Computed example of a mutant assay.
Amino acid sequence: MSQQSTLSPASNKSDILLEVGTNEVEVFEFNLAGQHYGVNVAKVNQIIQREQLTITRADCPPNGVLGSITFRGQPIMVIDLRAILGIYDEAPDPSRALMLVTQFNDQIVAFAIDGAERIHRVSWQSFEPISSNFAQENPYVNGIIRLEDRLVLILDLEYILTLINPRLGMSIDHSKLEKIEQEFKPRDHIKILFAEDSAMIRKMVHNQLQEVGFTNVTLATNGKEALDQVVAAQNDSKETGKPFSDYYDLILTDIEMPVMDGLTFCKTVKKDLALETPVIVFSSLINDQMITKCKAVGANGWGTKPKVSLIVNIIDRLIVHGEENIGDLLE
């Protein structure tokens, strides 16, 4: 596998825009002890031969942490996926062993893997959520992609990172939320539609929104479910003559979701349904390229997980105070 050519970013902005709203995702497939796993290519920063790296071992590292490596002049944590997943087979072939450097949740983290396979471009419709029984046995997996001769298990890197260091995951910053709650009231009249496939994150964000006064929140588990609710509200709005804002004042959506992703959902709402309702993208994937995609589908704002306080600020500025320019929050 040609690591540089296969995983190089889009060559220019026009290439990025052409890929927006297709309801497809690129999955990087790799292996650990013969089992095939995958992650969203959007989270992959670089792949490096492990033999080229020096791992600095910590005295008492958390379970699953190998140590750290220097990446572009900065130390980054190295996670041992074999230890996390409970794989204790023979060691990987050193000539194939790789370091998967990822970037998400505003963090750069490396994962030790046994070898690279290939990249697949698949529809989110082919992404199968795991059953509750499978989830209990494999909490690190959040979906499955079926290929011709094998299953690829999609790893929940955010969950793994939170497990190792809860401060890097969807933790609650009570001091910021308390400050926001004191500065802006009331919020209970704001009607929000929130689409998020992770039950853990959906519950956590919902609770935090309620904590600061946003008590009128409708939940959806993916973009298609959210879109169905938007279409139903729009149809009812046309029949009754009520403004759409009687149904929803704002839409908050994740990007990575089965059936329909958040960018396709946003594009459909903004361009196909021609709704002016603000759409905010809340994702671990937010970076310069993803911001370009958010703009291309008509999103009114975006925020990186786990910054719920930023999302609350955006909602306050856009809806509670009716501001049109929130560029200072999006820089």
Rank of each mutant, 00 (worst) to 15 (best):
K13W: 10
Q210T: 06
P62V: 11
T54N: 13
L18P: 10
N325A: 11
D246E: 14
L285S: 04
V320Q: 15
H206T: 12
E196L: 00
R187C: 07
D328F: 15
I190L: 02
G38N: 10
R202M: 01
I180V: 02
D188N: 12
T70W: 10
G73T: 11
I286C: 04
S126E: 15
T102M: 03
P61C: 14
K305I: 02
T56N: 15
D89N: 14
S198D: 02
L153P: 02
I326V: 15
S237A: 15
I113G: 03
V279D: 00
E331C: 10
V141R: 05
I326F: 14
L163F: 12
L250F: 12
Q210A: 09
Y159F: 11
S5D: 15
N12W: 13
E148D: 13
H189Q: 10
L32H: 00
A299N: 03
I286K: 01
N142M: 07
P166A: 04
L329P: 14
D272E: 08
N23K: 11
P61W: 09
T218R: 03
V230D: 03
Y247A: 12
I319Q: 13
S11R: 12
I130P: 05
N63T: 12
A42Y: 03
V297M: 01
F134E: 11
Q74K: 09
I84G: 03
P94V: 04
N287K: 05
S126N: 15
V312W: 07
E26G: 06
P94G: 10
V78M: 00
Q4P: 12
F30E: 06
G67M: 02
T268C: 06
Y159T: 08
A220P: 08
P166G: 08
V39S: 04
W302D: 00
E211Y: 14
R57I: 10
I164G: 01
D272R: 05
P243G: 07
Q3F: 15
D228E: 12
Q3A: 15
E323A: 13
R146A: 08
I48S: 08
W124D: 03
